[in-house]
Amino acid sequence: MRIGKGWLGLSAIAALALAAAGPAWTQTDTIASVKQKGKVVVGVKADYKPFGYTDPSGKIVGLEVDLADDVAKRLGVQIELVPVIAANRMEFLKQGRIDLMIATMAYKPDRAEVIGIPEPFYYAGAANVFAKKSSGLKAWADLKGKPVCAIQGAYYNRRTGEEFGANLVVFKGVTEAMAALEAGNCVGVVFDTTFFAGIMGDAKWADYAMVLPSIDPEPWGVGVRKDDPKFAAYMSGVIKDWHKTGYLLALEKKWGIPQSPYLVEQQAKFK
C-alpha cells in the first residue's frame, strides 16, 4: 500500500507537471505573440482579382487585403502580407509562417481537420462552367468526354473530371484558362462563380455565360492555427461584426463585385 501511495503521489506530480507543461507546448496564443511582435502576418492571394491581386508597384491589394488590414487595426498592430497559393497556404499557417489566412479558401471538413476555420464565414462561392451561350451545354453530364479548362487547386476539379467525366485541361492561372477558352481549346472553364460574376459585364465576354446550374456552394472561411481556440474565437467575433455592420457588403461594392445573396442573408442573420 505504501508503495502504491508513493507511486500515486509520483504519478500525480508527473501528471501535474505534464498538465502545466502541456498547454505551453501544444497551445499557441497568436494574439499574445502578435501583440508582442507588433505585427500580424496575414497570408492572402496575390493572383485572384479582386480579392487579392498585385498592383503595378508590386503591392497586394483587394477585398481580402482590406479585411486583413481591418484585423490588424482591431489588434492595434502593423500588418505584413505574405502572398500564398492554394498549394501552400495551409502549410504556411501550420508552420507559423503566417498568423492568419484570408485567401479565398472554401470550407471543407478535411481542411478543418488540419487548421482552424472559425465560423461564421465571410463569403461564399460556388462552381460553374463559363462557356459560349451557344455551346448547348445544359447539365453537368453534358461535359462528359469534352475538354474543360480548369485552374490548379480548385476543389471541384476532381468532381468535374471523375463524376461528370470531363477531360480536364488544367492551367496555373485563370487568365491562361480563359485564353484557352477563347482559342477554342476547351468548351468551357470550370471555376468560382465569384470570378465569373466579376467579368460578366465585359463586352469581350458578351457571348459567354455561366451555362450550368452552380454546384458545390461553399462558404469561404479564414484560417487560424488549429491549436489556438482563443484566436479562433476572436476571429469569429470579428467576422460577425463584419456581417453586422455591413462592412463586407460595402467592400463588395468598393471592389465592383455583384452583390452576393449570401452576404445579404448573413447580415440579416446577425442584425
Binding site: 493572383d47 498585385t54 492561372g173
Partner: peptide, 16 residues
C-alpha cells in the same frame, strides 16, 4: 510568379 499575378490582375487574355 509576378507574370502570373500581372496577367490575373489585368485579366486580359490578349496580354498572355
Amino acid at each position: 510568379t509576378l507574370t502570373l499575378r500581372i496577367t490575373n490582375a489585368e485579366g486580359r487574355t490578349d496580354l498572355l
